Simulated assay, not measured.
Amino acid sequence: MNELMPVLVVVFVAALAVLSVMQLALAFGAPWGSLAWGGQHRVLPGRLRVGSGVAPVLYVAFAAVVLDRAGWIDVVAEPVARVGTWVVFGFAALSVIPNALSRSRPERYVGTSVALLLAVTSLVVALGGATT
């Protein structure tokens, strides 16, 4: 599994990058609301736009923690990266539930798939630690 770790780290960060672009587009009024926040709005209302604008900040923190735990960067102490990666995994794993239960078919299929991808890749990093 250790030889797969670099690929999984790249997949994790790439998925967060795509989510960040999507969330920023939603924050600026893109008509992709069926993919996020319960899928009930074509264009998000103000309060959800704020949430979409904040989400990429959280995604950057998630990426930094996982990249640190994988040994690719060194921005936080090792115990913080170790615990932080488990927090990221927990967040991703828990996000599977609302995505899977969404009334919006696009959010159910796409959101659940992405959440599972993030959960699995962060779990592997949490279990495996540094790749370098």
Rank of each mutant, 00 (worst) to 15 (best):
G38I: 06
P56H: 06
L4S: 11
V83S: 07
L117G: 03
R69Q: 14
I73H: 03
M22V: 14
S104G: 08
L26S: 13
W32K: 03
V65H: 04
W37P: 06
T121M: 01
F12Q: 04
L101S: 12
P6L: 12
G111Q: 02
G111S: 04
L101T: 15
E78L: 14
A130I: 04
V88E: 04
L8N: 04
V60Q: 03
V96K: 07
G33R: 10
L24H: 10
A70N: 08
F89H: 06
S34K: 15
E107V: 05
G128D: 09
G128Y: 10
L118M: 12
V124M: 13
L19G: 14
T112R: 06
P45D: 06
L67Q: 01
V65M: 08
T131F: 14
G51Q: 12
S104M: 07
V120L: 13
G71L: 03
G128I: 07
P98V: 00
V124G: 08
Q23P: 01
S20D: 02
V50H: 00
W32S: 06
F62R: 04
V66R: 11
S52C: 15
T85I: 02
V13L: 01
A14V: 14
G84Y: 03
F12T: 08
L123I: 02
R42E: 15
A77G: 05
T132I: 11
G90V: 09
A15S: 15
L118I: 01
H41L: 03
A25K: 12
A70H: 03
A17C: 09
W72R: 13
T132V: 15
Q23L: 06
V124W: 11
G51T: 03
Q40S: 15
V57R: 08
V83W: 13
N99Y: 02
Y109G: 07
P79C: 08
V54Y: 00
E107M: 05
L16V: 05
R82D: 15
V11P: 00
A81E: 05
W32F: 12
V125C: 02
L58D: 00
G129H: 07
V18G: 13
D68H: 04
L118S: 03
L94E: 09
M22H: 11
